[in-house]
Amino acid sequence: MTSIASKSYLSRAAIAFGLALLASACAKSPSELDSSLAGGAGAGGAGAATPGSAQDFVVNVGDRVFYETDSSSLTADGRSTLDRQAQWLSLYPRYTVTLEGHADERGTREYNLALGARRAKAAYDYLVSRGVSPQRVKTISFGKERPVALCNEDSCWAQNRRAVTVLNNAGS
């Protein structure tokens, strides 16, 4: 167990490899892993997230991709995050996901609703192209309604131009 947990300290660039190891070591019993580690996931800090947990997904896989201003094109970073997400989702088929598309505040409300939808669709298409079943993925746009960073600078707006992959049955 500890060896598996330590794998999660790997950088994101190496995570795909780490996940491959994890998969080969524990491929038959991710749910057993979950139950055996249940309750301990939060105690060891971010890196100690239980494999297959929502925390594992957010911290070790990356739950979001970012976009340039007024663009829905996936960046290289975004594609590699989605690659990891696709791989992780193939390991944990019990999850369905909602892709939430968001825009920064520097646009008008109606257009940003459509732009968020376009961003969610771009991430959806990529996940499906990497083998995630379309039945497992739903999209929604929040436009500029749910920012995460609040300064009047691009450092914040860049964090808000995002598509977030939300696990739907993470509580189960």
């Binding site: 829905s72 109606e110 609703l113 459509a114 939808a117 376009r118 669709k121 771009a122 746009s141």
Partner: peptide, 9 residues
């Protein structure tokens, strides 16, 4: 109104 369809509206 607008209808969102596959990334278009």
């Amino acid at each position: 109104m607008s209808l969102e369809q596959g990334g278009n509206a």
